[in-house]
């Protein structure tokens, strides 16, 4: 007698995936087309079509808006210029489009999930563990089923990225909402706010720094998925890294890797900057 009771999940899972592919594959491919034509391609076309100096200017302005310091904004802009110098501008724009769309989708899905989790203990007990599993599961495990269901290319890469990167956003939205000062909420309540008024006028604005910290982490995780996503045919900087590694062109791989790091730093500074705007006020509030 074996100590381990034999248990084989492979066949049922394989059959489930197969039947999903046959039954819903076509419809999901339509969804793929929708995201692609409606969201990603227009953005990508705009980014790739715009003159690089316009993009650099936007980066500079955003960085300045976020940090209010030219000492930060200027180096970030130069870093992006540098990526162009590597001959990777086009790849950079493709990656940026990918990361932006993934982030937008993550926010669209993650913010409501976070709100739901914050308002219902029972739902939180369901949502958060599921997210943890999604985040911990080795990416390739759902990357290949994503290809089966959505086809090769950017959309399954984006969806896999969303699955992977949504977790911190939901968590920090939930946390931010639950940390909103109960006195302030009670006061708002006493004036006869509806749930929506409370959520939009009080809770979300006060949870904003926490939510933006979540967005920041989500973007970072999305960027870290870029290379993995290239393994299912997403183009951009990740593909450069992958091709560099796979053809033993270490220089090419490292150069593209460096470009990803520079992009990450730029996005990180900018999103963190926006999250910090209201913090001094909060700190003072705590002191009083």
């Amino acid at each position: 007698m074996d100590f381990f009771v034999p248990l084989d999940l492979r066949e049922p899972i394989n059959q489930a995936v197969d039947s999903l592919v046959v039954r819903y594959g076509d419809r999901l491919h339509v969804l793929n087309d929708l995201i692609l034509q409606g969201l990603l391609l227009p953005l990508e076309r705009a980014l790739r079509g715009a003159p690089p100096w316009v993009i650099l200017l936007v980066v500079a302005l955003l960085a300045w808006r976020a940090t209010r310091r030219w000492q930060v904004a200027l180096p970030l802009t130069v870093a992006c210029y540098l990526i162009g110098c590597f001959g990777l501008w086009d790849a950079l724009m493709q990656t940026l489009a990918l990361v932006l769309v993934a982030t937008v989708l993550a926010v669209v899905a993650g913010l409501p999930l976070g709100i739901v989790a914050a308002h219902s203990r029972r739902l939180r007990a369901v949502v958060l563990p599921v997210l943890d599993v999604m985040q911990t599961l080795p990416t390739f495990v759902y990357l290949i089923p994503a290809v089966m269901l959505f086809g090769l290319g950017k959309v399954p890469a984006i969806l896999a990225t969303v699955v992977y990167a949504i977790c911190p956003l939901v968590r920090l939205t939930d946390l931010g909402l639950r940390q909103v000062d109960p006195d302030v909420q009670e006061a708002a309540h006493s004036f006869g706010t509806t749930r929506w008024q409370m959520l939009l006028g009080v809770q979300l604005p006060l949870a904003w720094p926490s939510i933006l910290a979540g967005v920041n982490q989500t973007v970072m995780m999305a960027l870290s998925m870029v290379v993995v996503a290239s393994m299912i045919g997403a183009r951009g900087l990740g593909e450069e890294v992958l091709a560099g590694i796979q053809t033993l062109d270490v220089g090419r791989g490292l150069q593209a890797g460096l470009a990803i790091v520079l992009l990450a730093v730029a996005i990180d500074r900018i999103t963190q900057g926006f999250g910090r705007v209201r913090r001094p006020i909060r700190d003072e509030e705590r002191r009083s």
Partner: peptide, 22 residues
């Protein structure tokens, strides 16, 4: 010229298309 990134992804794409008759 679409490079699928990995052998597994190539197989998955072909198998998926075949199962759906595409």
């Amino acid at each position: 010229n679409f490079r699928p990134g990995s052998g597994a992804a190539l197989d998955a794409a072909v198998a998926s298309a075949y199962q759906r008759g595409q």
